[in-house]
Design a protein around this nucleic acid. Structure first.
Lengths: 344, 344
DNA sequence: CTGAAAGCGCTTACAG
DNA sequence: CTGAAAGCGCTTACAG
């Protein structure tokens, strides 16, 4: 293995000089710099990350902590969470970090199961900073993270804490977008299929819907505002089954995410209720499930990759300046028009 | 920050002793060991990964290299690759590594765009070993990887190289499983919707199908063996459109993956051809897209998480013993029965 | 079973 | 602008 010492010898300079050019110090004469660089290339020298980190007190890695209620499984059934949201955000983080040298260490973490533990990468001090991706995250985790002194940012559908940097979508605004469009296109009987009540985004959506409905002067039946037990198709199927059994016949459904929308659609399909001819449907949180659905689903895109990218930028800034005030970045949603809404 | 020195002082032993207990050496008296452990816990000591690695010449990290043709995007449209396969495998790898201390560094890598480059984590020597996840991987990459001396294993739908460890599914066997079942359930006119011909799995499937069809004595029309330009819905839609325009009316479709199946279904839906009443459909490579589809798709599950887990185990063994012979582990597929096949 | 010492490969004041 | 030297926090022969 070739070390800085070998490079220095071959280049006929001291090790410090090589180190200086490695770290782009302006103290090195241009001529020397070029010579050293040439030798580095010629010898195929790669600085040892451990040695560098030991001096620098830096790990040169960032953690991506994926929060979830359960481990991902090999069963892709309807009664499982799709896991797509965290995946998309995490892709965004990686793309936002692509031109840095950070290693990105991913870890699944279940804060519900172990509320007082820290993710391994944090406990082991393997990272210089971290992203807490998605909900549910226990508030204790944020407190515990702060104690470690490792900078972090929260990123997700509705990831927000007072004393932390956060990048989030706006579920209220997203729901409003969907409802406004449905009203514009002539829908009169809109049903809302929300996530479990244990998620904070449940309330944000509910609030957004109630607000808008008042503003629009649309009639609103609280009994048509449903929630599902889990964020998965089977729960939505169950909820929708019970709802339709009451004889209710919405002409549009707004769902809190794609798994819920597809769960509802399964029941509609069984009953011979057609999408979009009989009922339009718009999920929040566009994903590959929407683009590939038959028919393709018009959906609210919350820019998950962008959430990730902005989180990446934010964490980098936070690490540079630990004392700056906390930021809260809200990324606006937009609608992707596909085939699940009938213009009446 | 508390170091090994602090622990040693407080415990009244030498630094080496602390190090020995850290590394579970049998040379330490039980009594001393317990004392040291207690002090470690009390002081909340965490060994510095860089220092340890610098001595050990080890990074304590493993790379997960996700091969792809393009970067993931924020558009979840039909004309994008779903990215799900690598994601699922990577989950399996993580679960297989969950009880180790390795940091798992993920990197997206496009070998088509940069055939002569190495993934960053490899070039920077940030990892002790790596997983090459998915195809397309350029054969040059394998050669280049070998030159680095960093152990690695290939893992994917059809990831196999002579001179490397590999864990793979068996696309031929998977296709056979689907066809056999369709024949058993009374289907007579089976169409095969394969992946692009530039993937090796295309040929494996083709071979498997031809073999089986002969064995079963089923009639086989080579013109009903289709391929798509890309592994995405829009390509399958196009291929299926052209195929159906010829007047062909299959009673079953076997697709090389879920995006292709859903692309075909989109066209069927437009034409009012019902699944499964008019045509049954079985994709290879079960994924969340199948479980959530309406109707839910009966699919070939290739155990992607298990592929990942076995790859994890294999890499660990390879690192322990660099001289062992290369292994090729083929994971058998099974069928997940859902609602897209009509028993005729 | 334990301690003193050298070494892993870098960085960074400090002199010059 | 460059070199000699100390130090980062561990591990590992080597003595005892």
């Amino acid at each position: 293995m070739v070390t800085i010492r070998d490079v220095a010898e071959r280049a006929g300079v001291s090790r410090s000089t090589v180190s200086l050019v490695l770290n782009k110090s302006p103290l090195v004469k241009e001529e020397t710099r070029e010579l050293v660089l040439a030798v580095i290339k010629e010898m195929n020298y790669v600085p040892n990350n451990n040695a560098r980190g030991l001096s620098n007190k830096t790990m040169n890695s960032l953690g991506v902590i994926i929060m979830n209620e359960s481990q991902p499984s090999n069963s892709y059934n309807f009664d499982n969470h799709s896991g797509l949201c965290a995946y998309n955000i995490s892709n965004g983080i990686m793309s936002g970090l692509a031109d840095t040298d950070y290693g990105i260490i991913t870890e699944a973490f279940c804060s519900v199961a172990e509320p007082d533990r820290l993710p391994k990468v944090i406990g082991n001090r393997r990272v210089d900073g971290a992203f807490i991706v998605g909900s549910p995250y226990a508030p204790e985790l944020v407190a515990n993270m702060k104690k470690t002194g490792i900078p972090f940012v929260l990123v997700g559908v509705n990831s927000y804490e007072q004393d932390a940097d956060s990048v989030l979508a706006d579920p209220g605004e997203g729901s409003a977008l969907a409802i406004r469009y449905l009203v514009e296109t002539g829908h009169k009987r809109i049903c809302f299929l929300n996530c479990p009540t244990r998620f904070r985004s449940y309330y944000v959506r509910k609030h957004g819907v109630e607000q808008l409905v008042k503003e629009l002067g649309v009639e609103y039946n609280p009994e048509w505002f449903l929630s599902c037990e889990h964020n998965q198709g089977a729960s939505a199927y169950k909820t929708m089954t019970a709802f339709l059994d009451t004889g209710a016949r919405p002409d549009a459904i707004v769902a809190a995410n794609a798994p819920l929308a597809l769960g509802a659609m399964r029941r509609l399909h069984e009953l011979g209720i057609r999408v979009p001819e009989d009922v339009s449907i718009i999920p929040y949180e566009d994903s590959v499930l929407c683009g590939y659905a038959v028919p393709a689903l018009t959906a609210i895109n919350i820019q998950k990759e962008k959430l990730g990218q902005l989180a990446a930028k934010l964490l980098l800034e936070r690490m540079k300046d630990p004392d700056r005030p906390y930021q809260k970045i809200v990324v606006p949603p937009y609608m992707t028009f596909r085939d699940s809404v009938l213009v009446r």
